[in-house]
């Protein structure tokens, strides 16, 4: 699992790739929560290159969404097919704002 972070104007962009499973979740969660605490309340998590995600990965996304809600911020996701299918399976697509690619997401934000 690789996590890259960059800022685009006032938007924090986190790009994940590889497997997003329990082994990586602790660290990713810490980094994302840090970013949320320091950032401007706009977070884009780009998972277009994530090959696998499990329920602990989902939990990280839910935690990020809840933290941003407290800050009245906004979480936007970009998904790969496997991420999208787990999100739909757990019906989280009714909660998360999802875009097909990073450009569309940045433009919408």
């Amino acid at each position: 699992m690789i996590l890259q972070h960059r800022s685009h104007n006032d938007i924090d962009v986190v790009q994940l790739s590889g497997r997003f499973a329990m082994a990586d979740c602790g660290e990713i969660n810490l980094s994302i929560q840090d970013l949320i605490n320091q950032g401007h309340g706009k977070l884009l998590i780009d998972m277009e290159k994530v090959t696998f995600i499990d329920s602990s990965g989902c939990a990280v996304l839910v935690a990020a969404y809840k933290s941003l809600q407290l800050k009245a911020g906004r979480l936007v996701l970009v998904t790969s097919p496997s991420v999208q299918s787990l999100i739909e399976l757990t019906r989280l697509h009714t909660i998360f704002e999802i875009f097909p690619n990073q450009d569309a997401a940045l433009e919408a934000m």
């Binding site: 329920s55 602990s56 939990a59 839910v62 809840k66 399976l89 989280l92």
Partner: peptide, 17 residues
């Protein structure tokens, strides 16, 4: 299915599906 804001408890739902 756990409520949307739960941070765990989705495992069996996923296995079942």
């Amino acid at each position: 299915l756990a409520p949307w804001d739960a941070e765990n408890g989705r495992g069996w739902w996923i296995i079942n599906a």
